[in-house]
Write a protein that binds this DNA or RNA. Structure first.
Lengths: 364, 364
DNA sequence: GTGAAAGCGCTAACAG
DNA sequence: CTGTTAGCGCTTTCAC
């Protein structure tokens, strides 16, 4: 009623089914090459005894854990302002579950935790890691890379050390931040706007940098130049968006469009525009980024924005990692690097970039 | 450079230090009863070899995993609208990390996943579980209870089957929903309000029910009765709050105060009140619940609300579980239930209720 | 105090 | 196809 004081072992099942441990093991692990009736008998014994394999014993010999670490390295509480990570986690969880893998969550609150995480990963407790480290000059990606654990990054990682920037084999999943930004700004241009401002994200994150680059691409291209007075640095938060918009209005009261680096900061901008008596989109058109569910849709006015499929990104990260793991099966990855991989599967794409789409609502 | 092809074992460390495996093991696990200089020599060998114990091998013999499952059973995507779980997770993570325990995250998307979770927990992969199952009649708490895994629930669980409702030993952590609601409504009464409405939360969750009860307590007590036309059922979301407020204004245009079951729905109510031309708090005072960071503070006007320390709840859940685990050490918990526990430590409090505090801002 | 030896429960050759 | 036999790396009595 309370606890199974000691759960049945393979041995017990074998005894009950009148076979050897090896046979039971085979049946439990798929049952290839075991005659039907025997397998059936074993399965029944398993059922009756309520046998559940001991994962520790299995890992000890297989060196597989069927577990993946998810590392979220966000010193700030920003993680929690945004449904971003939650959605990503959900995608990851679904994919891992579908492949019978467990998700070990490693949250870090600053550099102090980095050593712990690195040690854990190097300790071989998990088969691989999914790492979110969106900040430039974060030492964590490097540490993890050195730990030698198969890893997929969420968001284009920055290595600080630029010699490694292009290192192949560093897998990551990101959305097309730059392309999405271009689409957004082009949309504003198409609306006839000319004094298009940009409220940036936190520029220590690659996503913010890439979106900024996309904005500059179009401004240079379509409008023949970038006017620095139209760019104001912010931080992805609503409060930051407000501050930025106020600055902007001060500096460039003639602004006729705003591309905000994400929906949350667009929200702040909308609020300030409303306060200042500007109509959106008549006086100032606004475009956001993310299309994060309740925010964009319920903004006033509903926000035109660039959608990225966050959950799918999570799912894809997990899939990539799992593929790499089974692909690497009995692949020694030994000291010998001399001969280039003949196997095409080895040349995993460094980054997978998911497309973005412009969602037109009322704000632009 | 790539992978540590095979990590060093105890054996290797022992060889290097010139001692036996047993001695190394002792040192690694605290080093009681090993002479200083020897211990030092072992530690150096560990350092030099970069030895990390193999958790699987250890678990196999100790039957301990130093891992705890966190089960979040939210079929709806609501989990992600609210920073609630993220904050809770953070608290849990901090506490587990402090005790060198890992966090295995189990997300479920409906009944189909329940069996999987139950099997996993029963499989003895983790030492205990922290379970969030906020919905009435959720079969999961029952399943988990039967799995015989030490468990602490987040939020007062509902067993559906009411015979078990008071079952002792079912640990949970919650905030004082009812008391907090009372405080909120009393505050409104103190402000001279008499036609105080309540926008409920999703009433299939105990937190919503408890807050509603608190509202009724005060209305009955201070104002001599409950007027059903002042209560409108909602669902904890901003959109739900809007709908509810609209209904309310229709039905009771004379309403002079609103107690919303959480900040998010209060936000919706504020929006509708503004649209309808009411001033807050002059015409209608509004109080929320949760004091969830960006929401309450940045509402317009800033929201008076009942604060619960969500992160602390998480931390407490973890602490409670961990205490129970070490407390239960070699405690057989055998089939024999006949004699009541003599040990005082056995009588763990069923529920730990954290206090709430009213945070006064501008809205009431 | 320290070492030797016996498994924890499972998988993976290898025989038969 | 099925059983037998070694361990995986660690902790833990039990002698010394």
């Amino acid at each position: 009623m309370t606890e199974a004081v000691s759960r049945p072992t393979l041995e017990a099942v074998a005894a009950r089914a009148g076979v050897s441990r090896a046979t039971v093991s085979r049946v439990v692990n798929g049952g290839d090459g075991v005659r039907k009736p025997l397998a059936e008998r074993v399965r029944r014994a398993v059922e009756e005894l309520g046998y559940v394999p001991n994962q520790a014993a299995r890992s000890l010999v297989t060196r597989r854990h069927d577990a993946v670490a998810v590392v979220i390295a966000e010193p700030e509480a920003r993680v929690f302002a945004d449904p971003f990570f939650a959605l990503q986690l959900r995608g990851i969880s679904k994919e891992l579950t579908a492949h019978d893998n467990q998700l070990v969550l490693l949250l870090t609150e600053g550099r102090a935790d980095h050593a712990r995480v690195a040690r854990y990963l190097a300790g071989g407790h998990v088969d691989g890691a999914l790492v979110f480290s969106l900040h430039l000059d974060d030492p964590l990606p490097g540490l993890i890379h050195e730990a030698g654990v198969p890893t997929v990054f969420g968001g284009r990682p920055d290595w600080g050390d630029h010699t490694r920037a292009q290192e192949p084999g560093v897998a990551y999943v990101d959305c097309d931040n730059r392309g999405g930004a271009r689409t957004a700004v082009r949309h504003l241009v198409g609306l006839g706007r000319r004094r298009i401002a940009h409220i940036t994200g936190a520029l220590d994150q690659t996503s913010a940098v890439d979106r900024f680059d996309g904005y500059r691409d179009v401004m240079a291209d379509a409008l023949g130049g970038n006017d620095p007075s139209l760019v104001v640095e912010s931080d992805f938060t609503p409060a930051g968006g407000e501050r930025a918009m106020r600055d902007l209005l001060d500096r460039r009261p003639d602004v006729d469009a705003v591309f905000a680096a994400n929906d949350l900061s667009a929200l702040g901008a909308l609020r300030v525009l409303r306060e200042s008596g500007r109509r959106v989109p008549e006086d100032v058109a606004v475009v956001g980024f993310d299309d994060v569910m309740p925010v964009a849709e319920q903004a006033d006015p509903p926000l035109t924005t660039v959608r990225q499929d966050i959950e799918e990104m999570g799912r894809l990260m997990a899939r990539l990692l799992l593929q790499g793991l089974t692909g690497d099966r009995d692949d020694p990855v030994a000291e010998d690097h001399t001969q280039p991989p003949a196997d095409a599967r080895d040349t995993t794409p460094a980054g997978v970039i998911l497309p973005t789409t412009l969602i037109r609502r009322a704000s632009a």
